[in-house]
Design a binder for these strands. Structure first.
Lengths: 103, 103
DNA sequence: ACGTGGTGCAACCACCGAGTTGCACAGGCG
DNA sequence: CGCCTGTGCAACTCGGTGGTTGCACCACGT
């Protein structure tokens, strides 16, 4: 269920998307609200939100006539754990190779 | 020292780059070697390596007539720690807001 | 009922980046 | 010395995507 983390990084690779995430990290907001606070159109925000939702980083909920979005920190922590695991594996392999060569 | 993690995510957002990293995670290799094992040209590999080096995820060293590259797992772990920290912050804020609204 | 603010949908543009090919240069090895 | 392999540099193509504008629709408040 480690839903490939590639899409997550693809999502995190854009500055505007980070701005959106950072803002949502402060608290839930609607697309229009975000468009007001950021230097891009609402449509652009909407597209970014779609990407973020697809990556599992944001959750959306219809609330009356507006749609409220909130950042999912848990997902980010999951990715972090996975990343750390991979990093350690690399270093471990490298150490083994190095030890093998030193004799 | 938190060397902006933005470039790291930009680097990790590409599938081919992950393939290169995964391969380097198995052990050091030259650009030509990588080009042989992956379905892309050597030049493409070279460009990806430049990006990865810029992101601090790969280290290169000239070894005779070839250049050997190796993955830096430590960097990955650093990014992971940072990510986890951010994720927890978001969730903490969200919890506070929720608690505030429930009374 | 009517106006307003929020969403959804579609067409469109511009640029960046992934990938390629071609060629010149450098360093081992017979 | 000559050959072969690996690297470096440059020009070029092409698709994806971040961004925009315009319009239709829906829900809430007065």
């Amino acid at each position: 269920m480690t839903t490939t983390l590639a899409p997550v990084f693809a999502a995190l690779g854009d500055d505007t998307r980070w701005a959106v995430l950072a803002r949502l990290g402060e608290g839930p907001a609607s697309a229009s609200a975000l468009a007001r606070e950021l230097p891009v159109s609402r449509q652009a925000i909407v597209k970014h939100l779609e990407v973020l939702v697809a990556a599992g980083l944001v959750e959306s909920e219809r609330r009356g006539r507006e749609v409220v979005h909130r950042a999912l920190g848990g997902r980010l922590s999951d990715v972090a754990r996975e990343l750390d695991r991979i990093g350690r594996t690399w270093d471990a392999r490298l150490a083994r190779i190095k030890a093998l060569a030193e004799e």
